[in-house]
Design a protein around this nucleic acid. Structure first.
Lengths: 251, 251
DNA sequence: TCGAATTTGTGCGTATGTATC
DNA sequence: GGATACATACGCACAAATTCG
């Protein structure tokens, strides 16, 4: 019977200590030298064990200092269909989630006219090349970058209206549903498709991710009014930092 | 200016080739020896680069054979509130998703009486120690284990009814909503909370996961009838194998 | 059937750079 | 400055699985 590799055993020991709270968030793991002495192993076994935990997002290493248990605190992102028209006042969904977690939300944005590429055209059920408004966001909580998103709206719907530019005018920061309500477009449904994948180089840069553990969650969200897509967005979240909550009525 | 580490550069090169399709699913990566020759690096650099890609779920290694690009095919899991009472006939949500993907669903289950621990009691809004029906499932698609779930129902609701045992009687395999409908409990809402974490040892066993890349998605789902929890379940999915789709009406 | 070659998996030792304390 | 610690990197060795003639 084959025995389990030493670095798997060590990773399992440390993982158990972390998940049980014996090594709480912020705690410093024993140094590689100590792990070598205490477990009778070589440095490379210690390194592979710690690399495993890094890949799981449980720890982060700091050169010259040590390896530390990551803060498992997650931002809760709520997705439901209520109170989207008038309810919570002039705050975006991200700002509401961040404030509810006691964190200070800020964001940067950039809107511009663009044309739909093939994938966006499919999501919006329009022709490739059709004009769209493209808006990119970078959200921060307590100055830590924690969400990227890019949204596309068909200009056939909003061109010439007061809400053509999402981040300008009276209906700024109220969310897509309320904004389009103000021009008589009544959104009645949305869909979110969630996958995960390795972060792209620019996403690693924008989210300040380390090359290890650079997996992101990707949400493709589309709003519909009577079956017609009115806005679609791609939302990128660093893995391990969010809890996603969906609340859905059963008809 | 510090230059980027060699194993990051190599990982980036291979990652780009994989994501672009130049190295399609099933393709064999160059052997470590070839990578050493072609890039002028040591064996360990090649190993660390490939370990990075394994952690991202992009490749799998087979001793004695090679490292292969993983099949990116994902099972689509739909979560919405329609057609849950009568619509799709006698199939569970998992079976419907699997068949829609052209795969053959099978599952094992185990039901037994139990008492609610603290976390289950909180999710069901009952007292800790209250009797519940606990049912564990292991779902397979084409004989590949791909989903675990455990559900809890308060026996205060179902005890003595024809649907007390979820996998026995007339209302088997029709889903929770239709099953409880048959005893007059009308579910009108559900909530799902999604996080990710490293797989536990028994989950790795049950899902046939390799120690590397053993991250799972965890969904905590609760059904409500007029605000009262009637069933809660913990669903464990291997990461990288699912696309989750939520469709939510906007009120 | 057998054996040789190949390939990954695991593990050791060492060295250098650099960040932290 | 010195000690400590992690990050990166090289080389080597053996085991185990696979491949293929």
């Amino acid at each position: 019977m084959p025995t389990e590799p030493a670095y798997h055993r060590l990773a399992a020991v440390l993982r158990t200590q972390i998940l049980s709270g014996e090594l709480p968030p912020g705690a410093k793991l024993p140094s590689e030298t100590r792990l070598m002495e205490q477990h009778g192993i070589s440095r490379s076994v210690a390194k592979w064990a710690i690399a495993t935990l890094k890949g799981e997002g449980l720890v982060v290493g700091r050169a010259g200092s040590g390896v530390y248990v990551r803060d498992g605190h997650r931002l809760v992102r709520y997705a439901h269909g209520r109170e989207m028209r008038t309810g919570s006042g002039p705050t975006s969904p991200f700002a509401r989630d961040a404030e509810q977690a006691g964190r200070t939300p800020t964001w940067e944005h950039d809107s511009r006219h663009d044309v739909a590429d093939e994938s966006i055209a499919r999501r919006l059920a329009i022709e490739p090349g059709a004009p769209v408004m493209r808006t990119s966001y970078r959200f921060l909580a307590d100055d830590e970058p924690i969400q990227l998103s890019t949204s596309w709206e068909p200009l056939a719907i909003t061109a010439g209206t007061p809400v053509e530019w999402p981040e300008a005018g009276a209906a700024v920061g109220v969310g897509v549903v309320a904004r389009l309500d103000s021009i008589g477009v009544r959104i009645d449904e949305f869909e979110e498709r969630l996958t995960d994948r390795p972060a792209l180089p620019d996403e690693m840069e924008a989210l300040a991710l380390t090359p290890t553990s650079a997996t992101v969650w990707v949400i493709e969200r589309t709003y519909y009014a009577a079956g017609v897509p009115t806005e679609t967005a791609t939302i990128v979240l660093p893995r391990g930092r969010y809890e996603l909550v969906y609340r859905v009525p059963v008809l």
